[in-house]
Structures are given as structure tokens and as C-alpha cells.
Amino acid sequence: MADPTPAIHNPDYPIPEELRNNIAITTLDRIYNWSRAKSVWPMLFGLACCAIEMIATAAARYDPSRFGMEVMRPSPRQCDLMIVSGTVTKKMVPQIVRLYNQMAEPRYVLAMGACASGGGPFKEGYNVVDGIDKFLPVDVYVPGCPPTPQALLHGFITLHEKIESQSITTVPWYRKGESEAIPVPILGPDLIDLRQASLINYMSTQTPEPPQPAAAAEEPVAG
């Protein structure tokens, strides 16, 4: 496999020896992605336990400024990366979607930990969304409960690789027209994802099926 992050100065043109310190020949994609990948600003935004490890990662021992990522901004307007660090609850998800909609493109989402990736240990909870990818497009998933700072750093590096592999000709934010905002879910009798409105309306016309509890579990065997 080709090196995903080749050196920025990678000319196919011969450059005279005396000019090599002054001139670098590269592609637009590479210089564009290089500059973007080396200054990804995460959002100062914590949800749960994973936020504590995110803060620990941001501290001196793990030092994300090595990756140009130490500038955490509380305003979504100034951020490139949303680290969804913790359990996404139904009560919180409208705010998260709104924050994502407020971020300027290009924007990335990193699902940190088991809860943000798929609900984690709280998946069955009545107030828990089983993974932020039900609402937002996720770029990198970081496993762990919570992920260690090393795992989060690996997630950052993976994100950088993803950024460097994009091409300016195909990225969605230079297409014609505005990108569509994700509809902010509504807190109704339960969380309402407006993209499912027609399905919800259709289900309401069906005869309600009584919930089918699986046969009561046998007593777990001791020992």
C-alpha cells in the first residue's frame, strides 16, 4: 500500500540543486490536505466519562499539540473536529446535532468510546441513543470504555490519514449548492428523528402490536 502521507516535497520535476531550499513542487491536494491535517481544532465539548480521558489526553503527558490539535474551541464555528466523548442521550442529541450543524465545513466527527460508537454498556437504556452514527456521519471510531489517551491519539492519527487521502476535486464542501443540515431531532413522547417521520406516521396506522417480551429468562446458573 502506498504511503498515505507522502512527504510534501515530492517533485516529479528536477529542481536545480541551488534552488532546493527555496522551491518545493507539490500538488494542490497535498499542500491543502497537509495544512488541514496539521491543524485540526477539536471542539471543547465533553459528554461523559470519555471527556475526562479527553482532558487527560489534552494535558501535558500526552500532549496533542504534537499533532497541532491542542487548540480546543468551545464555539462550533471555530472547530474542525467534534469528538463525541461519551454516552449520547436522547435528551442531549438535539443539542449535539445543532452543534454539528453550526460547525463550518470541512468538519469531522470522531466517536470516542463504546457509548458514542454503539451505545456501549448503556445501549439498552431508555434514554440512550445507541451510537451517534444514527444521526451524524462519523469519520473515526475509537474503541474502549473509555479509550486510553493512546487510543485517542491513534484515532487522531487515523483522522489525519483520512484527511490526507481526500481530494479537493471530490470533497463535498466544494460542490455546488449548500450542504444540507441534519434535521434536529425533537423530544416528543420519545426522541423523534424527523428523517423517520414517514415511517413513524406509517407505524401509527398499523394495529399496535403488544410488546413481545421474550420468555422470562431462566435463573442464571450460579457458580
Binding site: 431508555y126 441513543v129 413522547p189 417521520a197 413513524i200
Partner: peptide, 15 residues
């Protein structure tokens, strides 16, 4: 049916 961790009371419509 929604594929998500949600349920609605019988007869509920979004409209």
C-alpha cells in the same frame, strides 16, 4: 421497526 432505541404511543403521528 425504527432501528433505533425509540418507541411511540399507539396512534402517534409526527404531523
Amino acid at each position: 421497526p425504527y432501528g433505533m432505541n425509540v418507541q411511540y404511543p399507539a396512534g402517534f403521528t409526527v404531523d
